[in-house]
Design a protein around this nucleic acid. Structure first.
Lengths: 333, 333
DNA sequence: CTGTTAGCGCGTTCAT
DNA sequence: ATGAACGCGCTAACAG
């Protein structure tokens, strides 16, 4: 592979000069520049980013670490991050931790070893210590979608509590009385906020309250639905899912077991999967602004990297409109 | 940031020794090893992959370049690639080209500059020359999902022609007579194969044949459906989409315009989006084995990288079962 | 055998 | 416009 020295030799100049031409760092005689460019062209020469990174002590790379790219929230997040990074000249290294603390640590280790400049993380377990050393070493960290209580960093989230409160309140006002919730694991801030919003909306009247803790997968939605709709008294008249994946699984259960939506049961969910509009009935959902979250995260990240400042952490809370559709008759549009 | 020299100094040995301990390259006295490890531990030292890459002339990184991660095929592909790469110790750099030739070139340029070892590419336009120089420079290239006719490389694809042939044949045997097709742009091998399969299945009887060339987006599916179902004679009794995105858009059109599936119109599509089972009616689809494609691609890639062989290109063709559901009454399961 | 010295890989940047 | 040091880890050749 061609190196800067070969270009220099062929153009009859020093390597420094070639570097100046390449980066426009210092003025260069037109004639010399011409010769250099010619040689570069002839060899299809491209400077090595790895050598460059070594010298500059930055890699222009950010790691994107989250649970599972098959999750619609994460896909959009990835797209938002990717678009923003491309605009800013950053590369994106992709890591899935599958909501497993061990795997997450491996991702973080690898990212550090690769000397990424920044880290966009949907944190799982408590790899606190490690994240802190990362920060100390100058890696810019942005937590997205959820955050660890004991870790100071920039954070970009959606206002989960408010959205869930709004959704459940609207259901109550529409006359639903036994509103059940499929929650997320309470180990995540997101999971907790959504339950809080639900509780606050129900207020003192927790008679119809019913919560099952589900997971992040379609399968967990399927099972949780079965658990909530077990025959017996106090069968729910409305079901709220905490994630799009859960809802997809849940809808499958309902379809298989012949529960008709919305006549027998109203359904609403977090995360606006892009099929919800075309389902029959179309599903009411809390819009997930994952794309915006990704964009914003990179915005904060690049600001940190450019200013090299630390402290005064920012927390961005995006509000999330509810899109009312056919699965919840009675809700105001 | 800690360097190998600081570790060496603190442990009272030379940098070479530390390197040997790190990589197990040469045997080292237990006592010395202990001291080195202790110092490494104390400083949370991790060797820099960028320095390592510079020296080793490999980056243990592959670039994944495709149209748009929002596409279900690409998501699964990404997951397959990611899983396989993680197992093999490779990092994954993510690039979207949005089916735009210019952007694709930028992705490729960036990937080259970063000195990735390999490239998993869903090729768009004809950046042939550039891809060839990449190959000459030792970058392992695998084309996936589609391929450029004039570019020799390893290829992993799905047997599009066969799948479409099978699907349309089955529709004919079930009694459908006016089977319309929403195709993909004919600039891609995939787009062409799917049309070929369709044509071959119809045989001489092209009377009911009707093709509209759509794009890669949901929106294009929406519009194409409108075009095919314009009032008039010879209205199709079955509609086949060439991609999951198209189908999602198309189903929205059908829902909006009150066309009832399957009583007025049968629908089948390529790409098994994971909501198809829960739609009403559930949609018949050609399973997309994107995850397997990704796995296989990395398998070929790492083989190339390890053996450093070139030539004798392999082409892997995965077969894709058809999953018959409710949207196509009469089809055998 | 164990450990050291020295220089490489490639681009950047400061002093000349 | 140039020479040379530098960033950081690897490894061939060499010494004890």
């Amino acid at each position: 592979m061609t190196t800067i020295r070969q270009i220099a030799k062929e153009a009859g100049v020093s390597v420094a000069t070639v570097s100046y031409v390449l980066n426009g760092t210092k003025p260069v005689t037109p004639e010399v520049e011409r010769r250099v460019r010619l040689s570069i062209e002839r060899h299809q020469y491209t400077p090595s980013d790895v050598a460059r990174s070594l010298r500059r002590r930055t890699t222009s790379t950010v790691a994107l670490v989250f649970g599972d790219i098959m999750n619609s929230f994460h896909v959009r997040l990835a797209k938002g991050v990717e678009d923003a990074c491309t605009r800013q000249g950053y590369g994106v290294l992709l890591y899935n931790h599958d909501e497993d603390e061990q795997k997450e640590l491996k991702c973080l280790t690898s990212a550090r070893q690769r000397r990424v400049d920044g880290l966009v993380l949907v944190p799982t377990g408590r790899n606190l210590r490690y994240l802190r050393t990362l920060q100390k070493q100058g890696v810019a960290l942005v937590q997205v979608d959820r955050h660890l209580e004991d870790l100071e960093s920039d954070v970009v989230e959606v206002d989960d509590e408010a959205a869930m409160f709004q959704l459940v309140s609207a259901l109550r006002q529409a006359g639903y009385r036994r509103i059940a919730l499929v929650a997320l694991p309470q180990t995540t801030s997101t999971g907790r906020s959504r339950v809080q919003g639900y509780r606050r909306a129900l207020g003192d009247d927790s008679s119809g309250s019913k919560i099952v803790i589900g997971g992040f997968t379609k399968e967990s939605g399927y099972e949780s639905t079965g658990a909530l709709l077990a025959p017996g008294p106090g069968r729910p008249d409305a079901l709220v899912y905490s994630s799009g994946r859960q809802a997809l699984g849940g809808l499958e259960w309902l379809k298989v077991h012949g529960v008709s939506v919305p006549s027998q049961l109203a359904v609403a969910t977090y995360d606006d999967e892009d099929v919800f509009p075309i389902l029959s009935p179309a599903v009411t959902a809390v819009e997930n602004r994952a794309y915006d979250v990704g964009q914003k995260a990179i915005e904060l990240l690049t600001w940190r990297l450019q200013t090299r400042r630390t402290g005064e952490w920012r927390r961005v809370l995006l509000d999330t409109p509810i899109v009312v559709r056919e699965s919840t008759p009675g809700l105001p549009h």
